[in-house]
Design a protein around this nucleic acid. Sequence first.
RNA 1: GCCGGUGUAGCUCAGUGGUAGAGCAACGGUUUCGUAAACCGUAGGUCGUCGGUUCAAUCCCGACCACCGGCUCCA
Length: 724
Amino acid sequence: MPEDLQPQPTPPPASTPFAEAKTDVQRKTLDQRSQMDELMRLRHSCAHILATAVLRLWPDALLDIGPPTSEGFYYDFDLQHRFSPEDFPKIEEEMRKITKENQVFEKSVKTRAEALAYFEGKGQKFKVERLGDIPEGETITFFQNGEFVDLCAGPHVMRTGNVKPGGIKMLKVASAYFRGNEKNPQLQRLYGTAFKNKEELDAWVTLQEEAKKRDHRKIGTEMGLFAFDAEYVGPGFVLWLPKGTVLVEELEKLAKETEFQAGYVRVKTPHLAKKKMYTTSGHLPYYADSMFPSIELDELKGRPDLIAEKEGLLDRMIEMRSSILEVGKTIAAGFEIPVGTVQSTGEGLFAGLDEAMRQKGIEEDFILEKMTALRKLGKLDPVTSELVGKFDEVCTQLKKFPPRQTYYLKAMNCPHHHRIFAAEPRSYRDLPLRLAEYGMCYRYEQSGELFGLMRVRAMNMNDAHLYCTAEQFAEEFRAVNDMYLKYFKIFGIEKYQMRFSTHDPARLGQKFVNEPELWKKTEDMVRQVLIESGINYVEVANEAAFYGPKIDVQVWSAIGREFTIATNQVDFAVPAKFGLVYRDRDNTDKTPLCIHRAPLGTHERFIGFLIEHYAGNFPLWLAPDQVRVLTLNDDPPLVEYAKSIVAELRSHFVRVEGDYSPNPVKAKISDAEHAKVHTMLVLGGRDLESGNISVRLHSKGPQGAKPRAEVVADILAAIRERRG
RNA sequence: GCCGGUGUAGCUCAGUGGUAGAGCAACGGUUUCGUAAACCGUAGGUCGUCGGUUCAAUCCCGACCACCGGCUCCA
């Protein structure tokens, strides 16, 4: 998968002690605010009530902001006292008191100077900063309830009494950087929620508890799907247990079949690559922090004498190098060619020092090379000439030593696939070339980011790279979208959204490759395909990858939780960096476009999503335990009948087990239900005599008895068709 | 990475400044029964790791590790 290679954020202006907002959060317009629905108003007012209560309990608290959210509301404070859930009862009590006081929310307009004087007088430094965020010309309004006054654009409910005391609940204490920028101080964030009344709050609380039961980490442990072993294997590395591996392999089977039919070919690549791979792709300078540290291979290992010799030569080389560079830069300046410009010269020696060579190191290498050339032409003074001569000698000697090799664990598959593209000569007849791989990637995620299967450090991507011509692009892109929709249907994903991220023309050449026409052309193509395919999408400005527009795929699980499972990206830059070309009809070499796509994202995250989506009750084709045959007792003829059914199903690759113990059938059913076995075949004397099978489905109860052949055929068909 | 919290048996959880319990699971028996739990028994823990305080630490203190809730980042 590709990555966004984003340069560091710009430093804050000197006038403020704080860094700017990291993400471009759109300020709500007053018009948008006035359209806030009733519940959002209520929650917004609750945030003020919370702040009122906190100030009563801790008068020295500094305030930041307190907006409503889809789940409730929060307010950010800076305070010596560390909030803990133990504080919640007294905060809630104070909030209820405030609702009973039935204070009026009163709006007032202030000038910027008045507002500034007010907050500076109170030492509310964060409020002073927030004041600075309000654009000139926008009306500055305050809201007051009781003794509490806040900078606020509203809107609010009329009175604190509109909030029902039973509808408020404090939820959690967390931390948040001021303006969401990690360079700023961390504030304490108090989360709460509010509903019209206690009944709605209770219903929400119940729903939260249900959601918690679906947590993939909990179900994964209960069902024996996967494990983490931080002590021996490392945090963020999944151990797929046999039952979880079933899910992995069923997904792979699905993807391989789907991709085969869509004309993909499969490849396999190693988990490591040399450093050159990632300097060429452009990942290393930007992405190194997210990669595992390099692996250094030193061929001189075990030869201390050679190592010492090499070190000595290196020291000499470095020393001479800086002296030569000093002279060389003076000479370059003498040609009136500023180092680092595209220019040819009378001598032709310092020509061709273009932008690409200005990257660190290359410019100096260029000068060294030219100094060697000048020496051969006899254009250097004797001292410099001798120095350069010795330098060349040392360099030659150093070349006799095997170079130190640096390897990296791959964080994405695209560079490897690019090298597969480069491995053979390509013709326009070969395109589109669709290279697919379940490639294991390794990313050094920050420790605080690890989260069950959703954020791991080793992940298996349902990856493919589609190389095509500009003319083929729309068709290829459409086919990728069709594949997404096909998967959504199989998994019963009813709600999805594609976030189409485009570039910012103002930052061409900085955040985005400087190809204005290609940007426009590809974005237009993507947009058109999205519209024509009837895809549900939103356009997000300025968030593209550096090499092309991208699409993030968000889906919502059965209980309404949102997951970003995949991204889809267009790349018109990196293939060129690897010099990838195909021979076109007109016998010229052209660079292909590349589409990165991974509809199932990573196994890890996708299975995490599926576990929560299905609450562990997988459809038959996915279920780790598809069928269990249970006998009423252990009478030999009955057990024989059961075993013959197990054998028949197993011959068709059905995952089936038998439970022939003399335990009561109620107990056996209970065991199977707890294990979430999809289909239970319950056999007793009646079934043996009639040649029937009594079917029971997980969490659906008994389905009655049917002839054996019919039951087997039904099971096989449901698996084959991947019925939900 | 940052802020806060947590760490007791495979899982869910009690508990104490004088070196630990329950239920489920596991294991061994017994149990012959028609759709969500038959009975008896056995075994299982350096109380996350390493230091410190103490006559004595699972408990108090510190560091580290991991996990949880967020922030930032992201598939």
